[in-house]
């Protein structure tokens, strides 16, 4: 049956009004969050986008400069160094930090006794404010009075220059970062492990599967969805490396820990070049958007396969 168009429109409007009225309370509850996000996230994002095409003078006002901020950023010899460092950190963090929480979670999960103690112990560093853990590790790494060199000395090994060795410094940051963050990720894996049906293990045990085979054929395939998502999240997180080099090394020695976000900070707040800072921010934004799309695609695929 065909409805005359004149009638269809009011009916659609009525339906919209009705749904609005039905959901008014819902929108009301959303309002504070929407306002907070708009003020502190979306508005700055839009401003960042605009400023990246401006010479941003705080006193005289802004001036449009086209692509010149991007030209400046791409011509900066520090740019490839910063990206190389950031990728190096991301790769090292994957090598060292990615499997650590999985192993911790499986170990804690397998424990017959003291499970909650270890869960808490591994989670503890996450509770510390990042600044505190960074400052604590700064002392661990101290060349002359630090903990690590004291240990090396006690067991008769040569001491290291840690944060002053440009070949070692990035590794130092990765170890700290893994220590500080692994606990949180471990909890996610622990939760995922609770979801693995126990009858699978029982069946495997009856078939005489060893611990290793159970791990390989049951545990890992069952949590691979969570693992994939956390992989992408970790890449996104580690590419924004800032706190550790900012507090510990100021990007040194010899630019060895100058990350992309550190460079951005330097442009903006040490040299007052906000246009370049915004331009670099936008570049990083697009790189991370690529990973985020991958993340969303993966989540959808995994939820479909479940």
């Amino acid at each position: 049956m065909n409805t005359p168009p004149a009638l269809a429109a009011p009916r659609a409007r009525l339906r919209l009004l009705a749904s609005l009225r039905r959901n008014a309370v819902g929108y009301l509850f959303l309002l504070p969050a929407l306002l907070a996000f708009a003020t502190f996230s979306w508005y700055p994002i839009v401003r960042g986008f605009i400023i990246s095409f401006q010479k941003y003078d705080l006193v005289k006002g802004a001036e449009w400069v086209g692509w010149s901020n991007f030209e400046f950023v791409f011509n900066d010899p520090l740019m490839p160094i910063a990206w190389r460092n950031t990728l190096q950190f991301t790769m090292l963090a994957l090598l060292i930090g990615y499997l650590m929480p999985v192993m911790l979670a499986i170990l804690v999960n397998e424990m017959k006794r003291g499970k909650s103690y270890f869960r808490l112990a591994y989670y503890l560093p996450v509770i510390l404010p990042p600044m505190v853990s960074v400052l604590l590790w700064k002392w661990f790494y101290d060349m002359d009075t630090g903990l690590f060199n004291a240990i090396l000395q006690a067991i008769g090994l040569p001491t290291q220059r840690w944060l002053f060795d440009r070949n070692l410094v990035m590794l130092c940051l990765v170890v700290l970062s893994t220590w500080a963050n692994a606990g949180g990720t471990m909890l996610l894996y622990l939760a995922a492990l609770q979801g693995v049906p126990s009858h699978l293990y029982e069946a495997a045990e009856i078939d005489g599967a060893s611990l290793w085979r159970r791990l390989w054929h049951i545990t890992l395939p069952q949590i691979r969805g969570v693992m994939l998502i956390l992989l992408v999240l970790q890449i996104i997180g580690t590419m924004q490396l800032f706190t550790e080099p900012f507090v510990m090394t100021d990007g040194g020695p010899a630019n060895a820990t100058l990350s992309v976000v550190m460079l951005l900070y330097r442009y903006g707040f040490r040299f007052y070049n906000f246009g370049a800072a915004a331009a670099l921010g936008l570049i990083l934004f697009f790189v991370l958007v690529a990973f985020s799309i991958l993340y969303m695609w993966l989540t959808r695929r995994i939820s479909q396969s479940l």
Binding site: R166, D250, G252, P253, A254
Partner: peptide, 13 residues
Amino acid sequence: TELANVLGAIASD
């Protein structure tokens, strides 16, 4: 900042 980088290179190599 640049001089600190040079010093850093001397200190780490």
